[in-house]
Amino acid sequence: MNKLYIQTNQSRLEILPQRGGIITSWRLQGQEIFYLDEERFANPQLSIRGGIPILFPICGNLADNTYTHNDKQYTLKQHGFARDLPWEVTHQETANQQKVSITVTLSSNEQTRAVYPFEFKVAFTYQIQGNTLEIGQQYTNLSTEPMPFSAGFHPYFLTTDKTQLKFEIPSQEYHDKITEKTHLFNGDFDFNRDEIDVTFKQLNGKSATVTDNARKLKLTLEYDDTYSTLVFWTVKGKDFYCLEPWSAPRNALNTGEHLSVLEPQATHTASVRLTANFF
């Protein structure tokens, strides 16, 4: 499996284009930011739990994993297909040691058209500069009809003690997927639960921060207007938590909620930034 690396004098990014264009590692000042489940990673049949999996053309799951387009029913599995397909490296910028980047691209093909009948090209540019990782995105509709989609990221952040995490999320409430109840959010989660899977929809800001007092690390996630939703997910006994920017909530391809619709030949650009500060 060909891992690619780009690095500056203080930061190194590891990318696997062949397995979903995924970032698998970001080391800053010698410390790893992301979690990676090595056992799952070793099995190419399993989705990767770690790094930053890409969500496209849906985030989350559809009701019964199906949707209808032009009176035809299609099956699309959770989070879409982008994280499972090989991406192509289309550009690299490594001349300036202060700021380096790599661009990976996914284009529609026979496999994608079977479950998502649109022609598209998606290009992501991963750039590291200082203590910031930026993911610039271009979504292009090459079809002759409007293309509905949602997109997002599923970063797995490494942590050693979840009780030492402090959250600042720009929302007063979340919806719990497991209990199907909505709760007020006061900045805390109950990490004694086997699994936490909650969605923040009513966002009133464009950034969220997590301070990990055990690791002495403050992470700031910034996102543009494309992103309407943040999802928090973790599993008891695992050294990760996920804070995921989504452009639309789950099942949006059926409900239309915050769904992006691109006109033919149009391109939508978006950006997500992650800044890490050790203290």
Rank of each mutant, 00 (worst) to 15 (best):
M1H: 10
I6S: 01
I6G: 02
N9C: 05
R12I: 12
I15A: 03
Q18T: 02
R19Y: 09
G21E: 02
Q31R: 15
Q31G: 08
F34K: 00
F34Y: 05
L36C: 11
L36A: 07
N43P: 04
S47G: 14
I52V: 04
F56V: 00
D64Q: 14
D64R: 11
T66Q: 15
T68I: 13
N70Y: 06
Q73I: 13
Y74M: 10
L76P: 03
G80V: 03
A82D: 06
D84V: 06
W87S: 08
E88S: 11
V89F: 05
E93V: 10
T94L: 13
K99T: 14
T103N: 14
V104F: 06
S107E: 11
V122N: 08
Y126A: 00
Y126S: 00
G130R: 09
I135Q: 02
G136N: 11
Y139E: 00
M147A: 08
F149I: 04
A151T: 14
P155T: 06
Y156Q: 08
T159V: 15
K162M: 13
F167K: 06
Q172S: 15
I178M: 13
T182H: 04
H183R: 10
L184R: 13
G187P: 07
F189K: 12
D190R: 08
D194H: 06
V198L: 09
T199E: 10
K201Q: 14
S207L: 08
A214Y: 12
L219G: 05
T220I: 08
T229W: 09
P245G: 04
T255R: 00
G256M: 06
G256H: 06
E263P: 01
A266P: 08
S271N: 12
V272L: 04
R273C: 12
T275D: 05
